[in-house]
Simulated assay, not measured.
Amino acid sequence: MATPDIPRSSSALPPLPGDPSTLRVREPGELLAAVPILLGFHPRESLVLVATGGESGRRLGLTLRVDLPPPEHDAAVAADAVQNLLLDSPTGAAVIVVAGSAEAVRPREDLVGLVVHALEARGIDVHTVLSTPSTAAGARWTCYDPCGCTGLVPEGSATPFAAASVAAGRVVRADRNELEQLLAPAHPERIRRREALLIQAADEALYQPDPGASRRAAADREGLDAELTLVDAAIADAAADRLVLDDTRVVALAGALAVPDVRDAALLRCVGPAAAAAEQLWTALVRETPDPEAAEPAALLAVSAMVRGDGALANIALDRAEQAWPGHRLTAILRSVLLGMRPEEIREWVRGGGEQGGVSAVPFPTSRRTIRRNRPGA
C-alpha cells in the first residue's frame, strides 16, 4: 500500500482574514464545533491539525485534515502532516483525532504522540490535543493530557464563531462525499455525446491548411478575442441566473479554455467583480464537460475556492482535475505554489499572472483529444 498523499486528502487553506478567524474560541468544545466550519464538512476517521498564531498565539490559521492511516503508516503521515502545517509558520497548534467511535478514550495515541513530538521538535506549542467520535453537537470529547478533562461539542449555532461564519456565507456539508458529488460528471449519455463532438473538432483542426505566419497571427488574435468573449458571455449569463450549457456551448467553452491565453484571462475572472458568477460557471462546466477537458474548469474552480478560503472545495476540485487529466500541469502548479498561501496572497498571485509559479508558461499539447484517445483504458 502506498504512503498516503497528504495534500490530496487534506483541506489546507486558512479561513478568510477579518471574518470568523478573528473571533476567540474559548474552550475545546468550541474548537471542535469550529472544525467543520474551517474544513467545509464534518470529518470522519480523521487526523485534524489546526495552526494558531497571531499576537495572542491562538488565532486560527491553516487547517489540515487527513484520513487516519493504517498504523504502519503513522510515522510517514505524521511527518508529512506536520511539514504541511509548517507552511503557515504557526506558533501553536491543536491536534484532533476524529475517531468515528466512542469506544476508545484516547484513540490512536501512537499517531498523536508522533505528531506532538514532531511539532514540539520544531518549537511549536501544542496547546490542545483532543479526541472525539464526531464533530456533531453533543459528541463527547476527551483531552489526551493527564488531566483527562472531557466535555460535549456544543451546538454550532450557539458559538460566536459559527454565528459569524453563517453571516459570512460559509457552508458546512455532511461529509467530504457530499462535496465530491457537487463535481461529479453529469448524465453519462450527455458526456459521451460531447466527447464525440470534441474528438471531431480536434480531428478537423489537425487537418486545417496552414495560412502562413502573418495571416495565422491575425487569425489567432481574432480567435482569442472571440473565445474570451464566449467565456465572458457565459459568466454574464451565470450572474443573471440564465446560464444554459447545451452541447454547442460546452464544446465551444472547452475549446476556449484549452488556449493558454484564454485560460490566463479566465483566471483573472476568479478575483474580479464577477468572481461569484465565474465560480458558478466553472462548477457547472466541471460537471458538464468530458475528460480530459474537465481539468481546465476544475483547476479554475480550485482557484476560485482558494480565493474565498474554501480549502475543502479547492482540494476536491484539484482532485477532480487530476482525475480528468492525470499529470495536468496547471493542477500541479496550483498545489505546489498555493498550498498554505492565504487568500489575499492568492488574489495577488492571480492578479500578477501567476508569475511565482509560471502559470503563463505552462505549455499545452497540440491535441489533447489525441492524448485522450491514446490513453490506456480510454
Rank of each mutant, 00 (worst) to 15 (best):
E178M: 05
S89A: 13
D5N: 09
A81G: 08
L243G: 10
G358V: 06
V126M: 05
L119F: 10
P260K: 11
G92H: 06
F364N: 13
A202R: 06
A239F: 07
M1T: 12
L224G: 03
P17D: 15
P70H: 07
L257W: 03
V48Y: 01
T370F: 03
I96D: 00
A361F: 11
L268C: 12
G138S: 07
V35F: 04
P4S: 03
A136M: 13
M1V: 10
V50Q: 07
S21F: 01
L334K: 01
S367C: 14
T135M: 06
V153W: 02
L245C: 12
D246Y: 10
L49I: 05
G148I: 10
Q83N: 14
W349L: 07
L39F: 00
L38C: 05
E72V: 04
A219Y: 09
R373T: 14
H73Q: 14
S360M: 09
G223T: 04
N374S: 15
A252E: 11
E103T: 13
R320W: 01
S214H: 13
A76V: 13
N374T: 14
A121P: 00
A34I: 01
A205E: 13
A139C: 09
A361W: 12
Q323I: 10
F364T: 15
G57D: 12
D237M: 10
V337I: 12
R24I: 11
R170M: 02
G18H: 02
L245F: 09
E345V: 08
G327L: 07
S9P: 02
V25H: 05
A33G: 04
L243K: 06
V35P: 00
A118G: 09
E120I: 10
S131V: 10
L301V: 05
P188F: 04
L47K: 07
D232Y: 11
P185K: 04
R26F: 05
E348F: 07
T3M: 12
R249V: 08
D232I: 13
R263Y: 10
E222R: 13
R342S: 04
T283L: 15
E344Q: 12
